[in-house]
């Protein structure tokens, strides 16, 4: 255990949140998270970050990564350092916009914390059915968040996660932790879901994607797995849902580990164990839907039927 009590603690205000099964103490206010009173196991604070990592295993565009350390510089707003799955240090640039700083805590940075802790963050949104998690995976822009919100609005499924859903293990069984109540939606998704963008905050200063809070429709806690749907584009002009079995399950879901391109194979042992454990208790379906066509009603009704069939 690392002693988390650093000097800034006493001088500066800090907020405690629960998200992804973690208790996070943060110097930065993160209104998207749920407030907690428990003892934290992750801290986020402002400070000086190292110039480079001592032993980087991979380097990408302005970032370095090893199994326990991660350093990334975003030119215009901040540099982030994450270590041991417990500590995030942020060194902001002058005039950095706090929304920009926060947007990347909520995605890349938190994902690296989860990876460093040996957990499996999947690039999925998620809802609840009978205390079990139903996840929607897919590449950016495919409609993961939209389908989760559509199922919530139309069929009253509670919501557990947007971009990242974390898989862990408890008593040799796979579990899913809920993430946090907020969803990121593009304008065309808001249109499809008939949600007004009036008063919705932007996720970043210059990115036209909105934060939508699911509030009371959010389920906070631990769930058993139920199913995972992987959404892909269909060249044909129709919606299809196919159940996937066998090793192909593993192959297609492995493509949706969060920030896989960034971490390469650093955590593949941990991921293998958790992913196979998860897939052994979750059904797996592939959704093929035509690109750029509004199929949300048809799709949510088909998925609802699959979820509810015994």
């Amino acid at each position: 255990m690392v002693n988390n009590i650093s000097f800034c603690y006493f001088l500066k205000k800090h907020y405690t949140y629960s998200a992804f099964g973690l208790i996070i103490s943060s110097e930065i206010e993160i209104p998207e998270f749920v407030i907690s009173k428990e003892k934290s196991n992750v801290t986020i604070c402002y400070g000086n970050v190292p110039k480079t990592l001592k032993k980087a295993e991979h380097e990408g565009f302005r970032y370095q990564i090893s199994k326990n350390e991660f350093l990334i510089k975003y030119s215009t707003w901040a540099t982030y350092f994450v270590c041991n799955g417990e500590k995030v240090i942020i060194q902001p640039e002058k005039n950095a916009d706090e929304r920009d700083i926060r947007a990347f805590i909520l995605s890349t940075v938190i994902a690296i914390v989860l990876h460093q802790r040996g957990l499996l963050p999947l690039h999925t949104s998620g809802i609840v059915y009978k205390n079990k998690g139903v996840l929607f995976a897919g590449n950016s822009g495919i409609g993961k968040s939209t389908i989760a919100i559509a199922l919530n609005k139309k069929y009253k499924y509670k919501f557990i996660s947007d971009d990242i859903t974390v898989i862990s293990e408890q008593n040799a069984a796979p579990i899913i932790y809920s993430s946090f109540p907020s969803v990121k939606l593009w304008q065309d998704s808001l249109d499809m879901l008939k949600i007004s963008n009036n008063k919705l905050p932007l996720i970043r200063k210059d990115v036209n994607k909105f934060r939508y809070n699911t509030n009371t429709d959010f389920y906070s806690g631990i769930l058993n797995p139920y199913a995972i749907f992987v959404i892909e584009n269909n060249v044909q002009n129709k919606v299809e849902i196919i159940e996937i079995k066998g090793v192909e399950k593993f192959n297609i879901v492995r493509n949706h580990i969060f920030r896989a391109k960034m971490i390469k194979e650093l955590y593949s042992n941990e991921h293998f164990k958790l992913l196979t454990l998860f897939l052994n208790s979750a059904k797996c379906y592939k959704i093929l839907r035509p690109k750029d066509v509004n199929t949300i009603n048809e799709l949510s009704s088909m998925i609802n039927k699959i979820i509810k069939k015994v």
Partner: peptide
Amino acid sequence: EDNTGLDISEYTENECDE
């Protein structure tokens, strides 16, 4: 994304160009 390791779905247009 493959060659930078980054996820750019929430980048601004100018950030992508860089």
